[in-house]
Write a protein that binds this DNA or RNA. Structure first.
Lengths: 343, 343
DNA sequence: GTGAAAGCGCTAACAT
DNA sequence: ATGTTAGCGCTTTCAC
């Protein structure tokens, strides 16, 4: 069986507490005894048991991150900054992705309920599906920060929340388009539920009407392909151009989707019109170095991540359970790095 | 404080053991009492405590995956299959990436030593850096499977191991090049230590000499840029073409590196010669839908992942500690999806 | 079918 | 400086 501090205690003729002090190098202990104990621990092949520590201390020094997909550079980016913030305070980060599976998402959120981590940073698919679990976590005083889901009144005040200022981002974007003479935009959407989808489209349309002058905006409902996020975009491009032939702007949700769109045009050897502008609602290396110039919206991932962590950290270290917090990041419109030269 | 089974026991006038039986729905228990207890658990907001369970049961039903980077589609792919295999046996997967940081890598491997997971699937950077920790895990009978690091005699028989048959993959590749009249290949390498680097290059050169006829092969030592894997490739392409102007094949280590190379050529408006062939040692959507035709080596990630899990699973469920296991996957050479049309 | 009790590995308050 | 002791939350064997 595994070596425990008791084994070390016996071996060295000391007690558990002394061994614990030696191993953690805390409390009063003589150098000689500590050396002796550390040596014995090494010799016997002692392994600290995290379950024992966690049970005793009531914390794990781990923060869990729940994501819909790894391999999307946007999340990789976000994670990078989040981990940095965690590391600065001595927290490890465990990443869980649910691959857009509703059951897995719920299963993982349930797991968060068991105190195996001290806090959670979660990009949930939709509160429609997970709201009950989020609410439960909130009631149980598990520090959870949600990334970028639109608010729903049912669950207001039931979670901390970081997001970009979508409305403002779109307003800026639409005025930019208008100023540059664009007239026929298409924006992709994923329809999770009819209600939400309609609500979101109405809202976007409202912003569009206010900022884009005479232009028109159409929505294209994506058929999500769970096996690869790129595939979602693959089928979209041609259908969009067929449905709306006069399109001069396509607004994609993220780099991978856009990558798929561009790939599909290449694959079937379809020429991309020179005046067609691509816009991407995140800003990763995927767009930054694309072969086609892309206008991107930088979501300020570093700020999102930092604030997400801080909300969690504050809760971990706060005596009382504070009211729900919000952080809304500004966005930046990023112009393409090099000009359109696809002849 | 948190609600425990004891609280439920008091509430219902039962004992811990009965409550435990009810919650886990095991052992003999009357339907009526079970209902009663479950209702109370719900009402009181009971949360099972994973540390308590783990301590008692001696296992966590979690497998940890250690990776150098998320956001690389190769690892995302591998993870997808690995998770599927784990889920089939009821294991959760926690992902840890060390972002190519040596300290973080060691820190995480140390964490694996504390029994917080039942097994580890690890893509370590180099056994040169981590061999001591791997050896220690092995001695402590922690099921660890290493992904694709070349064997080093010091640590032989100290870990389970899955990898592709690199030699064979290269042999196939080189003959293909030779048959297609390629004469001047450049392969990128990352030099971790001088010794290993020399050893690897010698070995590759040996294979090349045997299979590639009159052609020449040069190595290009990458300057790794830790902030983004794509950036590693960015600086490489032009330097390669300057150092070896007659190059007609570039063999990149992975899709992201290659993406960086191609991006750098676009960014600085450099025309890629029509007869220049790109080869990528993995096969992800990044190459599959590249704007430039790419010859890829499919590493059979599904097989790697499946076998990696099975090795871990076998150890978890085996009474005695078996000798080190190996699995070497075949590779497939994948031709570009569409032909070279970058005019 | 249910309860009593031991114990998983560890830490920390308290006693010496 | 070191030892004693209680207990974190849970499961499981063994009585009854």
């Amino acid at each position: 069986m595994a070596v425990t501090i008791l084994d070390i205690a016996k071996e060295t003729g000391r007690t558990c507490s002394t061994v614990s002090r030696a191993l953690n190098n805390c409390g009063r202990i003589s150098d000689k005894v500590r050396e002796e104990i550390l040596e014995a621990a090494e010799r016997l092949g002692y392994r600290p048991n995290s379950a024992g520590v966690a049970l005793q201390k009531g914390r794990t020094n781990t923060i869990a991150v729940l994501l819909p997909e790894l391999g999307n550079p946007f999340y990789a980016d976000l994670l990078h900054y989040f981990k940095r913030a965690c590391a600065a305070q001595g927290y490890d980060v465990a990443v869980y992705d649910y691959e857009y599976s509703r059951e897995l998402e719920r299963h993982l959120l349930q797991k968060m309920y068991t105190g195996f981590c001290d806090g959670v940073f979660a990009a949930v698919s939709s509160l429609e599906y997970t709201g009950d679990l989020i609410k439960r976590l909130w009631k149980a005083h598990v520090p959870v920060t949600i990334l970028g889901t639109s608010q729903q009144s049912d669950f207001l005040q039931c979670y901390d929340y970081v997001s970009v200022d979508h409305c403002n981002a779109l307003a800026k974007l639409f005025s930019y388009l208008s100023e540059h003479g664009k007239r026929h935009a298409v924006k992709t959407e994923i329809c999770i539920t009819k209600d939400i989808s309609e609500y979101v489209k109405d809202k976007i349309m409202g912003i569009f009407k206010e900022t884009a002058g005479q232009a028109t905006l159409n929505f294209y409902d994506l058929k999500p392909d769970n096996s690869s996020p790129v595939l979602t975009g693959i089928s979209a491009f041609q259908k969009i151009m067929k449905l709306y032939p006069e399109t001069d702007v396509i607004i994609a949700r993220n780099g991978m989707e856009l990558y798929g769109m561009l790939a599909s045009s290449r694959e079937r050897d379809i020429r991309i019109p020179d005046d067609l502008m691509f816009i991407c609602c995140d800003n990763t290396w995927l767009n930054q170095y694309s072969s086609i110039p892309i206008l991107a919206i930088d979501q300020h991932t570093e700020e999102l991540a930092k604030n997400g962590f801080e909300m969690i950290y504050r809760r971990i270290n706060s005596e009382k359970w504070l009211p729900a917090d919000r952080f809304i990041a500004e966005t930046t419109t990023v112009l393409p790095k090099f000009s359109n030269n696809n002849k």
